[in-house]
Design a protein around this nucleic acid. Structure first.
Lengths: 192, 192
DNA sequence: CACGATTCTTGCCCATCGTGCAAAATTGCA
DNA sequence: TGCAATTTTGCACGATGGGCAAGAATCGTG
């Protein structure tokens, strides 16, 4: 199971992943505030300075998987048939996302709980989303959305809706399947 | 023009406002990164430690007016006649908001430019919005929204749309009036 | 394989930050 | 006016992010 890329690249990827996992693990265990950057670096066997070469701060490290998932979403949208309307493409893509990353993964659940509770994580996550919003709008436009304004509005609304679904799902203790919740919320919004 | 409250309260409010204005002014002038908390405190004639008694960090200080505006929005929504549907109440409230805070205020424009550019401000602003989202949903529900899920979805969508309108308005260099843009975007969204 | 060129890691340093704490200053109230 | 409550300030401390340069690891090529 040799991954692609040169040894250097693979090592960097491994280190980044390790740092992310360590950050997540430690934050889940003791609470984000009680974890220092140094703790995370030590856990991985790397210097504090090296941590900074990979992530700007612990929040970024914790949310790394989120950003990866984000990239995947963009790819999924790009891969949808051009005949599909924008909103439909988004709905199908997010369904595909939940296929790739099993929503029942306990780590993911725990992370979500953490996110809901910690303001500084919420802030970073929201900032990431705003950046994503732009890219998503571009993709929609390239796919043939009627106008730039609508593309931006749809991207923003889509992300707001999925985020809300996540919030509701977490608050409800995960009783109803997340994919259904997401789908239902997205279905309640219309554009014209 | 004696404001309400005891002298202490008025002084605190004045200090807070001064710190906010100083933070905004300095950040607009030299860029947020080149402004230290100490700079802001000095500008107001107060100690660094006192700054911390009012704001957690410079971003919070810069965005203080935003949070005030946010409060106003909540009040406006609460004040709408109960007969109005949720979405209409939101649309009318935001119109009222732009009546209170003149959208052509150059300070507000400059702040918006700043916000669009600076990641750490985006992050804080987004975090504030998420908190607002919750309260807004509560208000909608209290006003008679059909269900909690819809209330949350509407609150999130509404904020996403207004934020998008602001972004588009800024990017277009403010050529079309912001209120119109907001109204048009909000009009393009429907729920059921 | 060898070796120069890249790229990554580390340690050191420093300005800044957020905050607990206690003393000093200011304001409220009787 | 004088005591109580609140606010401001200085001090100290651990933590942070990032510039810089030396050392280590990896790469590509001959």
């Amino acid at each position: 199971m040799e991954s692609v890329g040169t040894l250097r690249e693979r090592k960097k990827a491994a280190t980044r992943q390790s740092l992310h996992e360590a950050a997540l693990r430690l934050a889940m265990a003791g609470g984000l505030d009680d974890v220092t950057v140094e703790d995370i670096a030590d856990e991985v066997g790397v210097s504090r300075r090296t941590f900074s070469n990979y992530f700007a701060n612990k929040e970024d490290a914790v949310l790394y998987a989120d950003r990866v998932r984000t990239r995947t979403l963009l790819d999924l949208v790009r891969a949808r048939p051009a005949s599909e309307k924008s909103w439909q493409a988004l709905r199908h893509s997010v369904t595909g996302l939940y296929g790739v990353f099993t929503p029942r993964d306990p780590v993911w659940v725990a992370q979500l709980r953490l996110l809901r509770r910690h303001p500084s994580l919420l802030a970073r996550q929201a900032a990431d989303q705003i950046e994503l919003e732009r890219e998503l709008a571009e993709v929609l436009l390239a796919r043939g959305a009627s106008d730039a304004e609508l593309a931006r509005l749809m991207a923003a609304t889509f992300l707001a809706a999925t985020r809300t679904a996540g919030a509701l799902w977490f608050e409800s203790g995960g009783e109803q399947p997340l994919p259904e919740l997401v789908d239902r919320l997205l279905d309640r919004v219309r554009f014209h």
